[in-house]
Design a protein around this nucleic acid. Sequence first.
DNA 1: CGCCGAGTTGACCATGTTCAAGGTGGGTGG
DNA 2: CCACCCACCTTGAACATGGTCAACTCGGCG
Lengths: 231, 231
Amino acid sequence: MAAQLAISPDRSSMTTQAGIPWRGTDAPATKAEALCAPGTVEHFSHDREIFAEGEAAETFFRVVSGVVRSCKFLSDGRRQIEAFHVPGDVFGFELAADRMLTAEAASDCTLVAYRRRGVEALARKDEALSHQLYSCAIRSLAQAQSHSLLLGRRGAVEKVASFLLDWADHSSRADIVNLAMTRQDIADYLGLTIETVSRTLTQMERERLIELPGTRQVRIRSREALEDLIP
Amino acid sequence: MAAQLAISPDRSSMTTQAGIPWRGTDAPATKAEALCAPGTVEHFSHDREIFAEGEAAETFFRVVSGVVRSCKFLSDGRRQIEAFHVPGDVFGFELAADRMLTAEAASDCTLVAYRRRGVEALARKDEALSHQLYSCAIRSLAQAQSHSLLLGRRGAVEKVASFLLDWADHSSRADIVNLAMTRQDIADYLGLTIETVSRTLTQMERERLIELPGTRQVRIRSREALEDLIP
DNA sequence: CGCCGAGTTGACCATGTTCAAGGTGGGTGG
DNA sequence: CCACCCACCTTGAACATGGTCAACTCGGCG
């Protein structure tokens, strides 16, 4: 169901007890190098809230399996999705004392929770862990920046095409995109309406750029053609 | 001309030579606590390029005076501004080896450049500096996230109102916004056209929300009314 | 004075939103 | 096992908003 496989397998035990500094690799800046300090394994089922805007920010999380969405709710009922987090991602960084965003399980998912104070204290001693933390933050930064760029794009076609290509990269097979989220989620992420997302996808299907075998699955027929839609 | 005043005064000497660990304050997470390791003072005049997308990322910068824009150029000529950096801000963080964005002087400005390798090496020994770096990264992250949120907003009015209120906070007087940038810059930052920005501002003036004493100056007549435009 | 770049304004048009019906499919209970 | 149901998705038509193109204004500077 979930598009990606976890770094470490699901475990039902509620707590890992490990002071493992983390693996010794430093050079390859892959996601796999993510945080491996002591943490608590937690499960969240679909649509469950992980934390809410305004709460005290006492933890951050690493995604083991499933997909998480970070979002903001506007007073008029609109919802804006800031990011989707996939296995390997760390999220929940805050500068201030409390959450600026809400996080919810976009699918059933497994997370590891780390106490902020604990890890930060540890990081004070452990240069390597400290560097990890820094890397995760910068990675989040890069992701937030490309999201801005995506939202700034003018047309719906450009946005949807970018989105599909992004997710194709996360997928196991290069041409199959398994969407873990609903059309509404996609719309709120791209700053469009659900109708426009739907129309854009069917239009792409008519133009033989993609196929839609199921509502949560997209087959990319021509990656090049899709890339040409993005300026 | 520039809206904000620098932390330390402009100096014409080209290089500071100081191993100053930085000031001892830790608690107040204000911008003023920014990076204070050895760096090189550099001046850039209006519209000068600071670094370009694709270059090797060997430094980051702290803004002393003036305003910097980070942006991306699309193949079809469009420009997308990711952020404006004001005095106190640190920019130029990268995870990868090279720049993902271009930085340009939006006004004449003075920066301090830090060699990445140098500071990161220093940070390895100096826990305090390391924490500083981390804080700056998280601050950039928060800023990038609110920019996403801004771009996701539906209406032009919402975007322009948000923008004005943001800059009012940076200004010395609460009701006067001194814009350091052109309409085109604003448009590219908000994902609008220059015409729409212009029209929206004059519309707000007609509705007595703001006054436009000069093209680079806005007086806010009713902060509350402006805030009401933002959901 | 006249030029030039930046900003404003207007008319028209393209794109996406809104509102309102239909579809579709996966899961549940009879 | 089938039928129904509900949430999710698709489609269509009318409409609103912002983009485009083009003319015009303003202010600073040689």
